[in-house]
Amino acid sequence: MEKTEIERLLNEIKAGSLEQYEIIIDHYQQPIFTYCYHMLGHRQDAEDAVQEVLFRAYEHLGQYTYSLSFSAWLYRIAFNHCANVLKRRKLSRVLPFLYNRDQDGRNYVEESIDSNHFGEPLERIWKRLSAEERTLMFLRVLEEREYEEIAELMDKKPATLRKQFERVLKKCKRYLPTTGGVRNDGQKSV
């Protein structure tokens, strides 16, 4: 969708044409879901996340100022949401008695990356990446976005991201399958 078309829709929505938001949802729900799915590795969590992101985006539409692309703005909301979910999962592992259930009764202690969708060895690598590192990998590796574009989305300088990406790649390399074998804790076994 063209930038001018998106801006026209957003202006109409801000002026009260709620039904136009359906067009926005149709356009962005799958890419945002794909991002959340890779971030969280869990289908239901990703579906909950995309709903939350699109709902929050509508709620805060008045704060969107066109200084960055709408897509980048949505990804930022999605990143914040996913980072929170990941943080909560991490806490649930450290403090299971306090965090073992969310408000829907879902048990995060028992929950791990959805192995049906993220099998070994990807799961092994993915678990060791932070929310920011996952975002970087997703955008750079899978979506093949330029650093300049990722920089807008992650609010960082392209050069910083380039260095960070190299570090993440090295980190991934440690856990990639090798003929010599790598233990689950990331230490070389041979």
Binding site: E22, I25, D26, Q29, Q30, F33, T34, Y37, H38, R43, A46, E47, V50, Q51, L54, H117, F118, P121, L122, I125, M137, F138, V141, L142, L169, C172, L176
Partner: peptide
């Protein structure tokens, strides 16, 4: 990494 990520099919979603 790209091959592994791309190999995982992403389900379709409709939350409209």
């Amino acid at each position: 990494m790209r091959d592994m990520l791309a190999a995982k099919p992403v389900p379709k979603v409709d939350v409209k």
